[in-house]
Design a protein around this nucleic acid. Structure first.
Length: 561
RNA sequence: UGGGGUGUAGCCAAGCGGUAAGGCAACGGGUUUUGGUCCCGUCAUUCGAGGGUUCGAAUCCUUCCGCCCCAGCCA
């Protein structure tokens, strides 16, 4: 695996803690709640936590934060483990669940009561909210705040036995109802939930809250550095308070960093779930989704995503990273690895009038000019070919280098051809055929007299071509920040890009492409990087465009208008 | 108007009292049988703004401003 060279404030802290002797090993954890699929934002956290452990010779735990049975599902557990492994990380023996600690967490609850640091509150949820106060006004003490130790113990035990309905009682930490930090205003640490938990079934009817379970789970696992996102900064005093009240031997340090945002997409599980459930995309692994499963299906490699996470860095300021950074990482990696092929997406027929009708040839093509070890292949050539519709113009502007009447270009690995005639549909005026003649002396693509052409076109022999479906993807939203108008009441779905998917169902591919399997990557020369979709059938492969190649001609067109 | 954060180029992001790294994007040029790759070059006299300390400030002090987060029995 590549060594991350990018330092950041968290690595600096860890380095210091190691060299000062505060710790002799670093232990981190990635703590997803199994209530959705992992996305590229999680990848940032995974790369950070596992990367730090790897680079400093420590370990990183995978811990499912499964304290809310109502939202969690084993399907998510499976997908999360699969995605973390796919990204290239290994938790070894260290797979844990917050639910592994329910007994211990309950015992700690009892202990907190005994120490006078927690009480059973019987206010309704609405009342608790009212008593909490507001951002500017302090809260009021619950009337149940001074229950006796015995009463608290009895009630909490009764809660555990299932003697109460949901919402009737909770266990609260006794801290300070007038704290300017709302999280310290006697936060709820256990609530009653009657639901089927994916691992413990119905054996519990009280569940710990995040604030309570997380710090203690970290402590139990002897985590040294508990890395989380910025919104938990206000929770850190509570994290520390709980550990300070209890007889624990390990008190991890919570450090917060800014989560990843990407422009032209959304990153919240709730919003991603809406895209799926409301049918704006096909599934969680739709190639337009920023989920790891979506990116994988789109053709992103684990290496490219790790590289991306390395490039964007880790800091504390809010950020919206440009999509072009992600695309850059895809191209950078695939350029080295993807075998090249020729495929014509928008075909127009090219006929070489001076090439014998019954002849065909096998021409040698290079599989990857970046990697000689990938060798060469044979590509069939014949009189009738398909070329890209965009590679011909009847009245070309000055900067158009490709085929035009009277102009000579190179057919990649084949011959120089010169356009002599255009055949059009009588009725519509559409171009039907382009007639060319070829120079046999230029076989392979080099002219013995050293004459130059300004363009090289890709092509596919009509007689030998396979058919394929190609799916072209664009950004999912038309706005860089689809949620920017939420305060104004404009739903992010208003900004969905209606052209985010374009399906081309009659593309032509060179024969060699038929041997690829779902998940395989390739480059269609001059067009972009593609990946074979699992929807492929033996007679009809389906390709997803991962990313286009950088396209100087497209930029010229854009500038010219 | 309580508390917690944060402001360095279009976007990420280094920098930690000694005179603004790097990457993406963009723009020029070279090489090229992919208008790709690769190579070379340009792109912050200034770090949210003002004051102060200092021989010297993005870094220290101070005032102000912007943006983000917090009033779930979600995480």
């Amino acid at each position: 695996m590549e060594i991350s060279t990018q330092s950041n404030f968290i690595r600096d802290i860890i380095e210091k803690d190691l060299s000062s002797g505060k710790h002799d090993q670093v232990v981190t954890r990635f703590p997803p709640e199994p209530n959705g699929y992992l996305h590229i934002g999680h990848a940032k956290s995974i790369c950070l936590n596992f990367g730090v452990a790897r680079d400093f010779g420590g370990r990183c735990h995978l811990r499912f934060d499964d304290t809310n049975p109502r939202k969690e599902d084993p399907e998510y557990v499976r997908s999360i483990m699969n995605d973390v492994r796919w990204l290239g990380f290994d938790w070894g023996e260290h797979l844990y669940h917050a639910s592994d600690y329910f007994d211990q967490l309950y015992e700690y609850g009892l202990e907190l009561i005994k120490r006078g640091k927690a009480y059973v509150c019987s206010l309704s949820p609405q009342e608790i909210r009212q008593y909490r106060g507001t951002l500017t006004e302090p809260g009021k003490n619950s009337p149940f705040r001074d229950r006796s130790l015995d009463e608290n113990l009895k009630l909490f035990q009764a809660m555990k036995k299932g003697q109460f309905d949901e919402g009737t009682h909770v266990l609260r930490a006794k801290i300070d109802m007038s704290s300017p930090n709302i999280n310290l205003r006697d936060p709820v640490i256990f609530r009653i939930v009657n639901a089927d938990h994916h691992r413990t079934g119905y054996s519990w009817c009280i569940y710990p809250t995040y604030d309570y379970a997380h710090c203690l789970s970290d402590s139990i696992e002897e985590i040294t550095h508990s890395l989380c996102s910025l919104e938990f900064q206000d929770h850190r005093p509570l994290y520390d308070w709980i550990l300070d009240q209890l007889p624990v031997s390990c008190h991890p340090r919570q450090i917060e960093f800014a989560r990843l945002n990407l422009n032209y997409t959304v990153m919240s599980k709730r919003k991603l779930a809406r895209l799926v459930s409301e049918g704006h995309v096909r599934s969680w692994d739709d190639p337009r989704m920023p989920t790891l499963s979506g990116l994988r299906r789109r053709g992103y490699t684990p290496e490219s995503i790790r590289r991306f996470c390395d490039l964007i860095g880790v800091a504390k300021s809010d950020n919206i990273v440009d999509m072009s950074m992600l695309e850059y990482c895809a191209r950078e990696d695939l350029n080295k690895k993807a075998p090249r092929f020729m495929a014509v997406l928008n075909p127009v027929k090219l006929i070489i009038t001076n090439y014998p009708e019954d002849m065909d040839e096998e021409l040698e093509a290079i599989n990857n000019p970046e990697d000689e070890s990938m060798g060469t292949r044979k590509v069939p050539f014949s009189r009738e070919l398909y070329i890209e519709f965009d590679d011909f113009m009847e009245n070309p502007p000055k900067k158009f280098f490709r085929l035009a009447p009277g102009r000579e270009v190179r057919l990649r690995y084949a011959y120089f051809v010169t356009c002599e005639k255009v055949v059009k549909d009588q009725a519509t005026g559409d171009i039907r055929e382009i007639h060319c003649n070829y120079d046999p002396a230029t076989k392979g693509g080099d002219a013995p007299d050293n004459r130059r052409v300004k363009a090289t076109l890709h092509w596919v022999s009509a007689r030998h071509a396979g058919k394929a479906e190609v799916r072209l993807y664009d950004r999912l939203f038309s706005r860089a920040n689809p949620t920017e108008d939420e305060k104004k009441g404009i739903d992010f779905l208003e900004y969905i890009n209606p052209d985010s998917l374009k399906v081309l169902d009659s593309c032509f591919i060179e024969p060699g492409l038929a041997d690829l399997c779902p998940g395989d990557h390739c480059q269609f020369e001059r067009l972009g990087y593609f990946c074979v979709d699992p929807d492929s059938q033996p007679d009809k492969p389906v390709f997803n465009r991962t990313a286009t190649l950088r396209d100087a001609w497209a930029r010229i067109q854009k500038k010219t208008g």
